[in-house]
Computed example of a mutant assay.
Amino acid sequence: MTARISHETRTPGTFARAGLVAVAALALAGCGGGERPKADIAASRVTTIGVNSYLWRASLDTLAFMPLVQTDSSGGVIVTDWYANPENPNERVKVSVSILDQDLRADALRVAASRQVAQASGWVNAPVQAATVQKLEDIILTRARDLRRNAIGG
Rank of each mutant, 00 (worst) to 15 (best):
P37L: 05
P127E: 13
I152T: 01
C31M: 11
V51D: 10
E137H: 10
S73R: 08
T2M: 02
L104P: 10
R145L: 05
A151F: 10
D103I: 08
E137V: 09
A27P: 08
A120C: 00
I41D: 12
L60M: 14
N150Q: 12
W56R: 02
R10H: 01
T132S: 13
V46D: 12
S114A: 07
V79L: 11
A27N: 11
I41L: 15
K38S: 14
A84Y: 03
S96D: 08
V95Y: 07
V128S: 06
A27D: 10
V23W: 00
R115W: 03
L68H: 14
E91C: 03
T14E: 03
A113C: 09
G75Y: 04
A24R: 15
R4W: 01
R17E: 14
V23Q: 01
Q102A: 12
I99V: 06
S44W: 02
E35N: 11
A22S: 10
P127H: 08
A131Q: 13
A112S: 15
A126P: 04
A25Q: 12
L109G: 09
I140E: 00
T14P: 01
A144E: 06
T2K: 06
I78V: 15
A151R: 14
A29E: 11
L141K: 04
P89M: 00
K94R: 15
T9E: 04
V93M: 14
N52C: 12
Q119M: 05
V95A: 04
I140D: 01
T132F: 12
L136C: 08
R115Y: 03
R45E: 15
A58C: 11
A3M: 05
C31Y: 03
I49N: 12
E8V: 05
V77F: 10
H7N: 01
W123I: 00
A130T: 13
D146I: 13
S98K: 04
L136Y: 00
L26M: 02
L100P: 04
R148C: 09
R143S: 14
S73L: 06
D72A: 08
G19Q: 01
G19T: 05
N88G: 05
G76M: 07
L20H: 05
D101M: 11
D81G: 14
T142R: 02
V79T: 05
P37G: 07
A118L: 15
R115I: 00
V77K: 09
L104S: 13
A84P: 00
V46I: 14
W123F: 06
P89G: 00
A18M: 03
A27Q: 10
Q70V: 12
G13E: 05
A39H: 07
D103W: 09
R149L: 13
T142F: 03
D146S: 15
N125C: 06
V117N: 09
T62F: 02
Q119R: 05
R143H: 12
R4A: 02
A118P: 01
D40W: 11
S44Q: 07
T62P: 01
G50D: 13
E87Y: 08
E91Q: 02
A151N: 14
R149M: 10
I49V: 13
N150V: 06
D72Y: 12
S121I: 07
A25S: 14
L28V: 04
R57D: 14
A27T: 14
W123N: 03
D103V: 10
A18T: 04
P37S: 11
T9R: 06
A126R: 06
P89I: 00
V111E: 02
D146M: 13
